[in-house]
Simulated assay, not measured.
Amino acid sequence: MQQIKRFLDQMQAHNKSAHTRSNYQRDLLTFVSFYLSVQAQSATDKSDEHQAWSFDELWQQMPTMNWNELTSKDIKRFVMQRVKIGISASSVARQLSALRSFFQFLLTEGLMQHNPAKTVKAPKQPKPLPKSLDVDQTRQLLEQPIEGWQAIRDQAMFELLYSAGLRVAELVSLDLSPGLDGLSAGTIKVLGKGNKQRVALVGQQAQSAMQAWLLARAEWAKSDEPAVFINQKGQRLSTRSVQLRLDKRTREAGLATKMSPHRLRHACATHVLESSGDLRAVQELLGHANLSTTQIYTKLDMQHLAQVYDQAHPRARKTGKK
């Protein structure tokens, strides 16, 4: 147990939070409980369901632990057992990280000759899809009363995020030129990931909101400010400000949900995909380099997909022939 106490002391010296230290201590004791139980069961030829050890028992057993006896198989068995009993992938990954850090500490202390957890992989964590908005929620957000120049600006921002499927970084970095050179034709030029310029489509309602904002902007922007969206000082708006203004609009709309600019981008992709079923078109719309990225951010309505299939596939339609 002294080794774990010294490890936790070192964490404290490195300014790790009390919460982190508490998690690591619990994770290490959980592993020790599992390992000692498996060892005891092996000696008595019992099943692999390990018993629970109390902390008092662990304090007594820890001095007899020979850390050098641990192998990667022991760590893998622990990981498999955690998954088996329903521990989340993120929690198992944290526990495995605690073991790696602790064993690395023992290596530097000369108490271990290898790190048995170094090559053990954590279980894959599912990638959650971004939460979208349905059409009614989106309409409720966008169709709020507009009073004052900030509300006019906000309306243009939110319409543009939804219409063009922009990232918030693309929105705030948008310049009058060349960004809005094609606005009357329904396009804008934005600087996407990797400083790559791309053309985004703008719908009619977003165009109208943008035109209203450009008229209001002329009274507030500094003469040499290239940014399309500005703050009260006449300077480029920050991503943080966009989030705060969206929070305000969400409250005003009475939506019981946490909103973010990315949810509007995702809503754009989802609604286009649900209506068209064209994943490649959505890929271009979002400016994704790989189709696999688009598949992560979009979720196709299977009922709609079945309808499209029945209408489009030559072997899907019933001919009535025997």
Results as ranks from 00 to 15, higher is better:
residue 259 M to S: 02
residue 291 L to G: 08
residue 9 D to L: 15
residue 58 L to E: 08
residue 83 V to Q: 11
residue 177 S to C: 02
residue 128 P to A: 15
residue 215 L to D: 01
residue 11 M to G: 04
residue 305 L to T: 01
residue 248 K to N: 10
residue 70 L to N: 12
residue 175 D to V: 08
residue 89 A to D: 05
residue 225 E to D: 06
residue 217 R to Y: 02
residue 65 M to C: 00
residue 7 F to K: 03
residue 48 D to L: 15
residue 237 L to T: 05
residue 27 D to L: 06
residue 270 T to F: 10
residue 268 C to D: 01
residue 240 R to G: 06
residue 19 H to F: 10
residue 35 Y to H: 06
residue 131 K to R: 14
residue 4 I to A: 08
residue 135 V to Y: 00
residue 250 T to M: 11
residue 285 L to K: 02
residue 216 A to D: 06
residue 217 R to E: 04
residue 280 R to V: 02
residue 256 A to W: 00
residue 252 E to M: 13
residue 63 P to M: 08
residue 89 A to C: 13
residue 257 T to G: 09
residue 251 R to W: 13
residue 311 Q to N: 13
residue 76 K to Y: 10
residue 205 Q to P: 08
residue 101 S to F: 06
residue 132 S to E: 00
residue 215 L to F: 00
residue 54 S to F: 07
residue 221 A to I: 05
residue 293 T to Q: 13
residue 64 T to W: 04
residue 298 T to Y: 09
residue 150 Q to R: 10
residue 234 G to N: 03
residue 59 W to L: 15
residue 126 P to Q: 06
residue 70 L to V: 14
residue 23 N to C: 06
residue 186 G to K: 05
residue 15 N to Q: 15
residue 199 V to K: 05
residue 149 W to G: 06
residue 40 A to D: 14
residue 229 F to I: 03
residue 10 Q to S: 08
residue 148 G to F: 04
residue 187 T to V: 14
residue 188 I to V: 14
residue 174 L to M: 09
residue 171 L to Q: 02
residue 114 H to S: 11
residue 212 A to K: 04
residue 289 A to K: 15
residue 182 G to Y: 14
residue 89 A to H: 07
residue 195 N to T: 07
residue 22 S to L: 15
residue 247 D to T: 14
residue 21 R to L: 12
residue 174 L to S: 04
residue 142 L to R: 09
residue 251 R to K: 14
residue 27 D to V: 12
residue 145 P to W: 11
residue 57 E to S: 14
residue 227 A to E: 04
residue 121 K to A: 13
residue 11 M to A: 05
residue 182 G to L: 13
residue 205 Q to H: 12
residue 223 S to C: 10
residue 192 G to R: 02
residue 132 S to C: 04
residue 292 S to C: 00
residue 260 S to G: 01
residue 163 S to Q: 09
residue 209 A to C: 03
residue 205 Q to A: 05
residue 250 T to E: 09
residue 309 Y to D: 12
residue 33 S to W: 08
residue 186 G to A: 08
residue 152 I to H: 04
residue 99 L to P: 10
residue 266 H to N: 05
residue 134 D to S: 06
residue 297 Y to H: 13
residue 84 K to I: 06
residue 143 E to M: 14
residue 130 P to Q: 12
residue 12 Q to I: 13
residue 233 K to Q: 15
residue 42 S to E: 15
residue 210 M to K: 03
residue 238 S to Q: 02
residue 163 S to G: 06
residue 5 K to R: 14
residue 140 Q to F: 03
residue 306 A to H: 03
residue 148 G to Q: 06
residue 319 T to F: 11
residue 63 P to Y: 01
residue 185 A to Y: 08
residue 11 M to P: 02
residue 3 Q to M: 12
residue 58 L to I: 00
residue 107 L to M: 12
residue 256 A to Q: 15
residue 198 R to S: 10
residue 319 T to K: 13
residue 156 A to P: 03
residue 115 N to G: 00
residue 282 V to M: 01
residue 49 E to D: 11
residue 125 Q to H: 10
residue 313 H to F: 09
residue 67 W to D: 07
residue 198 R to Y: 08
residue 244 L to V: 13
residue 128 P to Q: 15
residue 68 N to F: 11
residue 246 L to C: 10
residue 157 M to Q: 08
